[in-house]
Nucleic acid binder design. Sequence first.
DNA 1: GTGGCGTGAGAAAATGTTTTCTCATATTGA
DNA 2: TCAATATGAGAAAACATTTTCTCACGCCAC
Lengths: 319, 319
Amino acid sequence: MSISTASKALNDSGRMSAETRERVKKVALEVGFRPNALARGLITKRSFTIGLLTNDTYGRFTLPVMAGVSEELVGHGVSVFLCAIEDDSERARVHVDAMLDKSVDGIIASGKRLDRQLPVDLTGLAVPVVYAFTKGPVDGVTLRSDDEQGARLAVRCLMDAGCRRIVNVTGPKTFQSVRERADAYRATIDGPPEVLHGIWSEAWGHEAVAQLWDRGGEKPDGIFCGNDQIARGVVDALRERGVRVPEDVAVVGFDNWDIVAAQTRPPLTTVDMNLRTLGREAGRLVLAMSEGREVQPGIRKLPCSLVVRQSCRGLEAPA
Amino acid sequence: MSISTASKALNDSGRMSAETRERVKKVALEVGFRPNALARGLITKRSFTIGLLTNDTYGRFTLPVMAGVSEELVGHGVSVFLCAIEDDSERARVHVDAMLDKSVDGIIASGKRLDRQLPVDLTGLAVPVVYAFTKGPVDGVTLRSDDEQGARLAVRCLMDAGCRRIVNVTGPKTFQSVRERADAYRATIDGPPEVLHGIWSEAWGHEAVAQLWDRGGEKPDGIFCGNDQIARGVVDALRERGVRVPEDVAVVGFDNWDIVAAQTRPPLTTVDMNLRTLGREAGRLVLAMSEGREVQPGIRKLPCSLVVRQSCRGLEAPA
DNA sequence: GTGGCGTGAGAAAATGTTTTCTCATATTGA
DNA sequence: TCAATATGAGAAAACATTTTCTCACGCCAC
């Protein structure tokens, strides 16, 4: 039995009798034959390897994305290099070079902001690149969450819960996602909008509540927060003031960061960006591109979903 | 100029005049020559690739370890495959097989508990394995934090701050690290020890404070918590009762999970397990083993350090 | 002057696959 | 029955390197 015949049998290529093919496969299984991926890659130009580049060191956004990518690709025999670069363009370059040396089949660039590029230029590379949850070039393939749709979900939940005066306590105006979410908020509520910008911290949530409650005039009965940390600050501050959540004021967060949302008292209703799904999609796309299939460039927005806990119950679901 | 001469020049092997060597290197640089890692790996049996296996999906422990590993190895041209397996032994097997197919030079097994093995057997593999922050076989190379030493640091900090009655509010007794930390606590304090076991959550921190304060008798003036989440619950509960931290009661946590420790009011003094350093060490060891250098099996304990914030100030540092 | 040796450089083998080519045999049609 | 065609299997080339061998040349000593 020649090596070439065996190869053809195992790869379902070439011409041969079904009987021979079966026989080879059976023996290969018995003997535990594992083809050497390096030798195979050398000739096929595919390493069954992709690189995931990220500058999100907390892993808050990258880990779910990574999990999705891996989940999608492991069935195709593709493994994932994870490279954490912390906004250091030189280090990023080293990592990218290392990946190229290993002839990855593609690269997924991921980050923590939709309006910032990674500190390294990935255009003009010989391998396909997919941008997931980070800014890519205009002619690149980019995946992101649909923040406007997510914000609409959140605000509608508050409205369904009966809120009439809803305020948006959110992060810095410099973040594109902050502006998008605020815009969707303005377009969805009935009354006059009020947007309070601050930083992404619990402390700002506290302070915002102080501002809103210590001034005269009507108090809000619903608060749409820019992320879960701010929401937690808001909820804590309200509880300290004796304001009941969600009876007096309903609160909705953004991110569904489990560790924050679930530990808040009461647990947060919040928007989930479905980053795992986004990761799967990124994996699917980069694999398709590496196999030469045509992929339309442009920005793909993936829908968010609402995770209802106790800080805002919206309409009760029909029984 | 023959290919073989070029190869020898670039690898500083073989015999040749220094002049030729220099000339080859210069041209290689100019022309941007990058050797194909696959072909190189095929012959040298080294892929300059290692696999990091983890069942810590939150990334709380794995991300710092990963960062350390990567940091240590990128300079040697080694890239890291990250495989997140969630206690699914079949999936783990698939990932390990994929790594072996790609002939990784070594595997680092990492986890979230020191007393649990990953759901896959890594003994008898052809490649070296290092266990980092997870349980390994007795004859394996294992790296872990020195929890007893870390606990001593924490308790001493409380004692230095003047605490006389220190209580240990911690996680489930089934965790080895809980027992080790509690043992160190018992051995370090002066008075009679008191250890309260619960789950790893803020809610348990609250409840523990309720138990301690709602019963009669002397109140503690120092609380050593099993992790930062419990510590946060404790601090929040104390504040709600009007107990001042650290003036009335000093609190020390464990883990230095930034997102929890820094957002607590006041910010937590806590023990850092130096997981990044642990990761670096794991990278160093697996690299050494893959290069055939002898590494003593056994458990290596790496020291923890204390991060002083405001919940316990210990002795003021000399000016 | 010639044998031995050190030196530098190229030739060739090896790595483990896939793929293309070649060839022998069996099958079919006239 | 013989040529044409289809079929199955092996031989060989290719992939991009490293490494071991071989060889030519010059130098030195005897």
